[in-house]
Amino acid sequence: MTEFIEELKFVFLDDNRYKLLVEGFFNTLKITAGALLIGVVIGIVVAAIRSSYDKNKETMKLRGGIGYRVLAVINAICKVYLTVIRGTPVVVQLMICYFIVFVSAQDGVPVAIFAFGINSGAYVAEIFRAGIMSIDNGQFEAGRSLGFNYFQTMRYIIIPQMFKAVLPTLCNEFIALIKETSVAGYVGVSDLTKSGNVIAGRTFEYFIPLLTVAAIYLIIVSLLTSLVGKLERRLRKSER
C-alpha cells in the first residue's frame, strides 16, 4: 500500500506533474464546450435549410421566383458540407485545419475548437433534421395558418418540439465529441489524453496516468449523462 502511494506521489507530485493533468482537463473541457456551441449553431442552420428544402421544394417550384433557386443552391452547399465532413476522419480534418488552414496559429486550442465544431455540426445537423422531419406536418400547418411566417413557425413551434425529441440522441453525440477531442494531441494541444501520455513518457509509468485519464473521462461523461437525464425529465413534465 505504501508502495502504491509512493508511486502516486512520484507520478503526480514530483515536478508538479499533476499540473499537466489539470491543464489537459481544462483544455478538453474548453474544446468540447466550444465545439458543442459551434456544432449546435451549425446544426440548427443546416438542418433548417435542408428540411425547408425537402418540405417545400414542390410548392416553391410552383410559385416560382428567385427564392427557390437560392434555396436549392444553399441546400446543395449544405449537402457537400455533410458529405465531406462525414466522409473523412476527424483527425485528418483537425490536421488540415492546423497545418494548412490556420498555418500561422500559435495556440492549437482555438483551432481544435473550430475543427471539432465544424465536424460536430455535420452530425448534429442530421440529428436535428431527423427531429424536424419527425414532427407532424399539422404543427407546421397550424403555425402557418395562424399567420406565422416560415421562420417564425420554425422558431416558436417546430424547433422547441424538435429539441425535446432529439435530446437523447444529441446527448449521445456530445459524449462522442468529448472522447473524440482526445486526438487533439495530434496538433500539439495538451488535452487530457496528451497530458496523461506526457506524464507516462516522463515517468515510464503507464498504469497510473492512463487509468487516471480514463477515469476522468468517465466522470465527465457520467456527469453529462445525468444532467441531460434531469433536463429530459423536466421537459417531459411540462406535458403531463
Binding site: 400547418e141 397550424a142 395558418s145 418540439q161 406535458e239
Partner: peptide, 14 residues
C-alpha cells in the same frame, strides 16, 4: 385574417 381549424386539432403539445 383567416382562422383555420383542422381535423386533428394540431394544438401545440409542448
Amino acid at each position: 385574417k383567416m382562422g383555420m381549424v383542422f381535423q386533428h386539432f394540431n394544438l401545440f403539445p409542448n
